[in-house]
Amino acid sequence: MNVVQAVGRSTLGLLRTAGSVAIFAGRGVSATFSAPWFGGQFLRQTVAIGYLSLPVVGLTAVFTGAALALNIYTGGGRFNAEQIMPQIVALGITRELGPVLAALMLAGRVSAAIAAEIGAMRATEQIDALQTLSTDPFRYLVAPRLLAAVLTLPLLTAVADIIGISGGFLVATSTLNFSGPLYVQNTWNFLTSWDITSGLIKASVFGFIVALMGAYHGYNASGGARGVGRATTHAVVSAAILIFAADYILTSLFSGK
């Protein structure tokens, strides 16, 4: 097989996958916006996706904020600009690291769990059973997960923002001789509401990606236990890649560059 053929074939494969993901997403979204709704499922997913992710997201944020503060302090020192460290940390966390890190943790935790659960339901004919029981799997399984992820990831990101900035604050006040009140005041005066909002909008999009990749790969799992394993891996990897791609696209849209 020559190179042109190989490239052509994998391009076609990619387009086909993109098409089926888009159709899946469309069905998921339309199921979210039309009755019947399964409120119990939505609450269950909100707890599983949002509440239970708080510890991992919080821990990631505090360490990242602390490390970021040290790095920016060191880097800033090269221009005698150590003093703007709080502002840069705040900007970096709210616009970029808060949403991206929270989303990546959810790709690992939530995409994987969704793919494994729905994949196992596929393998054991539970999805077929849903249909014969007059219940649309898109409404019962996919929509609650999409909605829960889209709504809770911004909340998790808000928490990550606060904890991340606190991480910077702790390092700054305990080892770098910053004054606590001044740190808070500098951060507060510097941040615009758009710094925060743009990060939360990103988080919503990432939440959609996380749930969509989990549900898509789980729903289309085939081949028993191995298939479920494969679905889980694909869900995590594709969610992570799409999060980075979406992050770049959204950032460039927001900055108008």
Partner: peptide, 9 residues
């Protein structure tokens, strides 16, 4: 329908 493996949720 009764599924082969029962397919209980």
């Amino acid at each position: 329908m009764l599924f082969q493996g029962a397919a209980l949720f």
